[in-house]
Each structure stands twice: as structure tokens, then as C-alpha cells.
Amino acid sequence: MMNTALKQKIIEVCDKKVAQKGSDVGLSFYAFFANKNDDPARLMEAATWWISTHQLDHFEKAIKIKKLAEETL
């Protein structure tokens, strides 16, 4: 399971991207992190949730990702 703080970050980023670029905007799990790897444990947590748990493609629609994160809050 992914921790609550990361889920909330995912929801925030998805909302921001949709507001900026519209409901068709896609993103990868890297969108939730800075360009440098300053939190490898959290990055792996997000990657596991994205790839192993949900078997998502590299890029997915932000609205889909937000919904998945909200379902487990």
C-alpha cells in the first residue's frame, strides 16, 4: 500500500496538470518527484504502485491516476 502523503501528492499534481493542460493530459509517476532522486524510497513506492499494483502504461491520463489514488485514501 502507498502512504497517505504520497497519495495526496499524486492527487495535487493531477489536479494541477489538469487545470493547466486539460482533462486529456497524461503523466508518468516521475511527475510526482523533483528532477533529482532525493527520495528513492518514495520513488520506489510510487513505481511499485504504478507498475506492479495497477500495471499502468508509462504515460496515463491524470484523471485516471487521480481516481485510483482517491479510491484508496
Rank of each mutant, 00 (worst) to 15 (best):
M2S: 12
M2L: 14
M2N: 12
M2H: 09
T4Y: 12
T4V: 14
A5H: 13
L6M: 12
L6R: 08
L6I: 11
K7E: 09
K7W: 03
K9R: 11
K9W: 04
I11Y: 02
E12Y: 09
E12A: 10
E12K: 12
E12C: 08
V13Y: 03
C14A: 03
D15Y: 10
K16D: 07
K17S: 08
K17H: 10
V18E: 07
V18I: 15
V18D: 03
A19Y: 07
A19Q: 11
K21T: 02
K21F: 11
G22F: 11
G22P: 05
G22D: 13
S23W: 09
S23L: 10
S23C: 06
V25I: 12
G26R: 11
G26E: 15
L27F: 01
L27T: 01
L27K: 01
L27I: 04
S28A: 04
F29K: 05
F29P: 03
F29A: 05
F29Y: 13
Y30D: 15
A31Q: 01
A31I: 00
F32T: 02
F33H: 02
F33Q: 00
F33D: 01
A34Q: 06
A34D: 06
N35Y: 10
K36Y: 09
K36G: 04
K36Q: 06
N37H: 10
N37Y: 06
N37F: 04
A41V: 06
R42V: 01
L43I: 13
M44V: 05
E45L: 14
E45F: 11
E45W: 10
A47S: 15
T48C: 13
T48V: 13
T48D: 15
T48E: 12
W49P: 03
W49L: 03
W50I: 05
W50M: 04
W50P: 03
I51H: 14
I51P: 07
S52Y: 15
S52C: 14
S52E: 13
T53M: 14
T53I: 14
H54V: 07
Q55A: 12
Q55M: 07
L56H: 03
L56C: 02
L56K: 01
D57W: 05
H58C: 06
F59Q: 06
E60N: 08
E60S: 08
A62S: 07
A62F: 02
K64R: 03
K64C: 03
I65T: 02
I65F: 01
L68R: 02
L68V: 07
A69N: 08
A69S: 09
A69E: 03
A69L: 05
A69W: 00
E70C: 11
E70T: 11
E70G: 08
E71H: 06
T72N: 15
T72F: 10
T72E: 15
T72V: 15
L73H: 09
